[in-house]
Simulated scan of single mutants.
Amino acid sequence: MQEKKLKVEFSSRLITENQELNLLDKSEVLDLACGSGRNGLWFADKGHRVTFIDKSLANLCMPSEPQADSMPTEHTYLAWDLEDGSAPELAQNKYDLVLVFNYLHRPLFPQIAATVKPGGLIVYETFIDKQAEIGRPRNPKFLLKSNELKNEFEKWTLLHYFEGEVMSDLNLSYKAQLIARKPSC
């Protein structure tokens, strides 16, 4: 259980310090390309139902102590490779909140937008092209251009947008951050 708390403590400040996200009632949350699941775990700890998706769930820290290789049933765990065409499309209008951190696969933008329920939220944070000057990733395929993320969700209500230096876990990186609400109609 200690490891779970440690992971939750390192959840992105973008979610832990946002008043709107703190006020969400029990919601359906998608943690896309979840990695260790640290951001989805923050919502799981608050009683939300979380779907964790990643190419491999090997690094996922379980939101509760599983019994003999079983996973907690209140959450969904999907080992899907979203880039090779083998995964089914994301369900439309399913999630109240979608989280995407440190992941960019541009062909998924339409699916990500479609999976958010009308009036739902997206929280997206990933690297911008300036990151290549200081470290990884360096491949432009994984780096947003200036205002690219904001432009991708231009018809949504923008609650937060930032591009620049982000300090997390004592590491400096260059990222874009977006929190936006999908139009209700």
Score class of each variant (00 low, 15 high):
residue 151 N to A: 12
residue 113 A to Y: 03
residue 171 N to R: 14
residue 173 S to N: 07
residue 75 H to N: 10
residue 14 L to G: 01
residue 6 L to K: 14
residue 135 G to C: 08
residue 48 H to A: 13
residue 12 S to G: 08
residue 159 L to V: 11
residue 107 P to H: 11
residue 168 S to W: 06
residue 131 Q to T: 03
residue 34 C to G: 03
residue 59 N to E: 11
residue 91 A to E: 14
residue 14 L to C: 14
residue 100 V to P: 00
residue 66 P to M: 06
residue 64 S to T: 02
residue 102 N to A: 15
residue 125 E to S: 13
residue 20 E to V: 15
residue 64 S to M: 01
residue 7 K to V: 05
residue 53 I to W: 00
residue 93 N to P: 02
residue 89 E to L: 13
residue 130 K to M: 05
residue 149 L to D: 06
residue 95 Y to C: 00
residue 130 K to G: 00
residue 122 I to A: 12
residue 64 S to V: 01
residue 12 S to V: 06
residue 19 Q to I: 10
residue 8 V to I: 15
residue 94 K to L: 02
residue 80 W to N: 03
residue 80 W to C: 08
residue 164 G to T: 03
residue 31 D to S: 12
residue 152 E to D: 06
residue 53 I to T: 00
residue 102 N to R: 15
residue 8 V to H: 10
residue 73 T to C: 06
residue 172 L to A: 07
residue 114 A to T: 00
residue 55 K to S: 07
residue 16 T to G: 08
residue 60 L to A: 04
residue 181 R to K: 15
residue 32 L to G: 11
residue 32 L to F: 05
residue 137 P to C: 09
residue 71 M to D: 05
residue 117 K to F: 13
residue 138 R to A: 13
residue 74 E to P: 10
residue 141 K to A: 14
residue 179 I to F: 03
residue 106 R to D: 07
residue 10 F to T: 11
residue 128 I to F: 04
